[in-house]
């Protein structure tokens, strides 16, 4: 059998967007530098070339163009709206949390808001306080939003397609360090259903739940631990909303141990919510306390040793796994 081709996250993401362009005539793209400012940004040019009238480069007016995206979606358009670094999405918070998230509910189910708010998140080396944020847990506190965090090229292609075709508002996070990462990606078009976790590595000793780039870091940690005889199962929820509780509980029932890794801050973070689900619904399966690896509750410093100190790494994750193994 021919080995599957390898392409970058950015290329795969663009293929997903291209599929939606072909599938939905009322789909358009809004925003600058969807795949950041690095070399991978060139892949977007295919979309600009093929669909010039469906790509719009707005001024640096996040508050207005995110509201535009929400309003256009309420008017029957499907819009992919890119907000840049996740910090800048706070300028769009009212459109996302007050408008897009509530419209379907408050209209008695009459209004649909098919919009994707996409942003770049995560510790990327030298991003400092305003270019490193991972606010996925903040958005998880807003009912009405779907939340998507792809962790590899293959998932990016299928998840962005599902997000853009969906009738619900979606917040989608791309980690800066995933953009140039290569992985096997099928050539055919496909959608990945929301609410279906993916086991990225099978194991029997510990369930390691990770999101976004932390999945890659967790896979590296699992390799370190395998050499020590610890068999880790890496579970990637892929979407936080809807959340695949079933897959999580099934894995914990098998391993009896849980470590959760995510880059949002520790307090009220993604790791807190996932730990709470297991504490409430699968406590009887646990053989050890749940441990979390997250960003400490401090703004993100620029200086390299300080940034390293707050960054969840494979070593920190491996150390947490060893502790739950006792």
């Amino acid at each position: 059998m021919k080995p599957m081709r390898k392409i970058t996250y950015s290329q795969a993401f663009v293929e997903g967007l291209d599929y939606c362009m072909r599938k939905l005539p009322n789909f358009s793209l809004l925003g600058n530098e969807v795949m950041g400012l690095g070399p991978q940004r060139v892949h977007l040019e295919t979309i600009w070339r093929n669909y010039p009238e469906r790509v719009n480069f707005p001024p640096t007016s996040e508050a207005a163009f995110s509201a535009l995206a929400a309003g256009a979606a309420m008017s029957g358009e499907h819009v992919f709206c890119h907000l840049g670094a996740a910090s800048f999405s706070f300028l769009s918070m009212t459109s996302i949390a007050n408008e897009a998230a509530t419209a379907h509910y408050a209209s008695g189910g009459k209004i649909k808001v098919p919009v994707v708010f996409h942003m770049l998140h995560g510790l990327r080396i030298g991003g400092g306080t305003q270019h490193s944020m991972s606010p996925q847990s903040m958005y998880w506190n807003v009912p009405g939003l779907q939340i998507v965090l792809p962790s590899c090229a293959r998932d990016a292609k299928g998840l962005v397609a599902t997000a853009c075709l969906s009738d619900n508002p979606t917040v989608m996070f791309t980690h800066d360090l995933l953009i140039g990462m290569e992985g096997e990606v099928p050539e055919a078009d496909y959608e990945i259903p929301f609410g279906k976790a993916d086991i990225k590595r099978r194991g029997k000793d510990v369930t390691l739940v990770a999101t976004s780039y932390m999945v890659q870091v967790s896979l590296a940690a699992a390799e370190i631990l395998a050499a020590e005889g610890i068999d880790v199962e890496v579970l990637d929820p892929r979407t936080l909303v809807p959340f695949d509780k079933k897959a999580l509980i099934k894995s914990v029932a098998k391993t009896g141990r849980l470590v959760v890794a995510d880059e949002s801050h520790l307090s009220c973070g993604v790791t807190a919510e996932i730990a709470a689900i297991v504490a409430e619904e699968a406590f009887h399966h646990l053989k050890a306390p749940i441990l979390r690896v997250a960003r400490p509750d401090v703004p993100t410093p620029f200086s390299r040793p300080l940034e390293d100190f707050v960054t969840p790494t494979a070593d920190k994750i491996a150390a947490a796994v060893r502790r739950v193994m006792g």
């Binding site: 030298g126 400092g128 306080t129 270019h131 410093p301 620029f302 200086s303 300080l306």
Partner: peptide, 16 residues
């Protein structure tokens, strides 16, 4: 350069 002797102790960097 992110040094401890920086104007802001290296926490801000060029952008801040």
């Amino acid at each position: 350069l992110g040094r401890a002797t920086g104007l802001n102790g290296g926490r801000g960097g060029t952008l801040h």
